[in-house]
Design a protein around this nucleic acid. Structure first.
Length: 522
RNA sequence: AGGCCGUUAGCUCAGUGGUAGAGCGCCUGCCUUUUAAGCAGGGUGUCGUGGGUUCGAUCCCCACACGGCCUACCA
């Protein structure tokens, strides 16, 4: 065991010294300020559930004896009688301490309690004259000294930097933060239940990959010393999960972290949680139906009506969600902006090329604060996607499945037999955010190899996000992937919507921040 | 990466070119049913950091750090 320094860390407030002195006084009384355990009969929530509706007389008659514990949140002293509110994170309950009941020594222990300390209480369930359910204390047990003060008892903690860096303080001070993360847990647990009930196998695939595949994004690089090998933190588990389907795990899912070396915003964190699932013999339409059921079940778990408020607006997860072909969405949006003939242009590369060069289009871009220059030199399919992102995406509030993506942006998806330019793919948008992405998985090994070669050419042209060749994945497909449908769901964003959290940082316990105290200078 | 805004007590915040203020918390005292308990007293501080202007800077100027929002990349 290390030596216990007598001095407090230099940046701790003066109040810490006072609290430390109280801990010393407890030790002088033969009381350990940091004991190891306490036997409870009830959590505070249990106690409230059991006795919360009883009258003062009923409680007096029953005289129920309980042992509870919690952190002291507030104190109201009154000479030889005091009140304190305890919290166990979940619920709050008042205790009522009389010097006559606990004795001089017991009352002294109560005096040495600061806000934030932990205490165990043995006593009787009762209701005060003002009607508040309380435990009248018979015996106090000191359970843990807090040397640092809690934030303001009614303004709480609002400094967002401290809220994110010191989430432990945020959780104590702001009850809604706890509710949000408990709700997120319930959402994920409901999704696991959904998969487990349908015979899916939950798996874990590599976080560190020699080739970061399965999505279009820039990866983080790390290094394995013993192997002398650079590895990438995964940007998606997709290619590994499909290898498992090749191996006969016909229904698999994984809920785990992805890492993308890109910007940070209210919708982006460098590490984020993704659900991916794959089902043999499903096509894209089956996956859409399944995803719809899954999200509706998750939403109902948090809001039985299936409808939630997000950013002051209603979002309904009632089935069925809207289906909208990408080109139709673009054509409608452009028509609404007065661009006549957009629908025809989307069907013909030359016409679209002409359209994005017109003054009318450039004026529209200027008006919508869109970069018109981004449209130069794009392939037809990428142009359609760009139009979708610039003019449609944000407006998709109610859950909407966008379908029929250009093949260029879908290198792992099957195309329609009747039109090889269109992928059998969907993306689900809710509240203007992409929440899910799925498709009929491309299982022709040679076509997949060809798509990788196309991606390599894109990479050579400077697209840092283009796929790399993955020979082992092609080899896996060579052994035979059954017809398969798969989907990825952004868990953090879904949690944002279902918990009405405006920022992704409100649903990630420890969101990415610069290191405290500044970074080392390069 | 670019633009705008912010950084003052443990917390929430006001404020001024002349060495700093409120509420809560905290400290001292009183009070045997309180509820943001009350009453009397006490201000606890590197005014983000480093330079500059000035007789004098927490305030004005510059740089930097950290944070927020927006834009860009992205899910």
């Amino acid at each position: 065991m290390s030596d216990r320094p007598e001095a407090l860390p230099p940046d701790w407030p003066e109040e810490s010294a006072q609290r430390l002195a109280k801990a010393a006084q407890l030790r002088e009384m033969g009381i350990d300020p940091y004991p190891t355990r306490y036997e409870r009969t009830h959590s505070l929530g249990d106690l409230i559930a059991r006795w919360g509706e009883r009258t003062m007389e009923e409680l007096e008659q029953e005289g129920a004896s309980v042992r509870i514990a919690g952190r002291v949140l507030t104190r109201r002293g009154q000479g030889k009688v005091s009140f304190a509110t305890l919290t166990d994170g979940d619920a709050r309950l008042q205790i009522y301490v009389r010097a006559d009941d606990v004795g001089e020594r017991g009352y002294r222990v109560f005096d040495l309690l600061d806000l934030g300390d932990f205490v165990g209480v043995a006593g009787t369930v009762m209701r005060t004259r003002r009607g508040e359910l309380s435990v009248q204390v018979r015996e106090l047990t000191f359970l843990g000294k807090a040397l640092l003060p809690l934030p303001d008892k009614w303004h709480g903690l609002s400094d967002v930097e401290i809220r994110y860096r010191q989430r432990y303080v945020d959780l104590v001070a702001n009850q809604e933060v706890r509710r949000t993360f408990v709700a997120r847990s319930a959402m994920v647990s409901e999704m696991r239940r959904f998969f487990d009930a349908r015979g899916y196998v939950e798996v874990e695939t590599p976080m560190m990959q020699p080739i970061a595949g399965g999505a279009l994004a820039r990866p983080f690089v790390t290094h394995h010393n013993a192997l002398g090998l650079d590895l990438y933190l995964r940007i998606a588990p997709e290619l590994y999960l499909k290898r498992l389907v090749v191996g006969g795990l016909e229904k698999v899912y994984e809920i785990n972290r992805n890492f993308r070396n890109e910007g940070i915003s209210s919708m982006h964190n460098p590490e984020f949680t993704m659900l991916e699932f794959y089902t043999a013999y499903f096509d894209c339409r089956d996956v859409i139906a399944f995803t719809e059921e899954l999200l509706a079940a998750a939403a109902r778990r948090l809001a039985p009506s299936g409808s939630v408020r997000f950013r002051e607006r209603e979002v309904s997860f009632q089935i069925p969600f809207r289906r909208l072909p990408m080109k139709q969405g673009v054509a409608d949006a452009l028509a609404a902006h007065g661009m006549a003939g957009a629908a025809e242009a989307l069907e013909d590369p030359k016409t679209l090329d002409g359209l994005v060069g017109t003054q009318g289009f450039r004026d529209l871009c200027a008006k919508e604060k869109v970069d018109a220059g981004a449209y130069a030199g794009l392939s037809h399919g990428k142009r359609v996607v760009q139009l979708f992102e610039d003019f449609v995406e944000e407006s998709l509030w109610e859950p909407t499945f966008i379908v029929d993506h250009p093949v260029e942006v879908s290198p792992l998806a099957k195309t329609y037999a009747e039109d090889p330019r269109v992928a059998d793919r969907f993306e689900l948008f809710v509240a203007g955010m992409e929440i899910a992405n799925g498709f009929s998985e491309l299982n022709d090994p040679l076509e997949q190899r060809g798509r990788f070669l196309d991606q390599l050419r894109e990479r050579e042209k400077g697209d840092a996000e283009a796929h790399r060749m993955d020979d082992d994945y092609v080899r896996a497909l060579g052994h035979g992937l059954p017809p398969t449908g798969g989907c990825g769901v952004g868990i953090d964003r879904l949690a944002m919507i279902l918990t009405n959290s405006p920022s992704i940082r409100d649903v990630i316990l420890f969101p990415h921040m610069r290191p405290e105290g500044g970074r080392d200078r390069d």
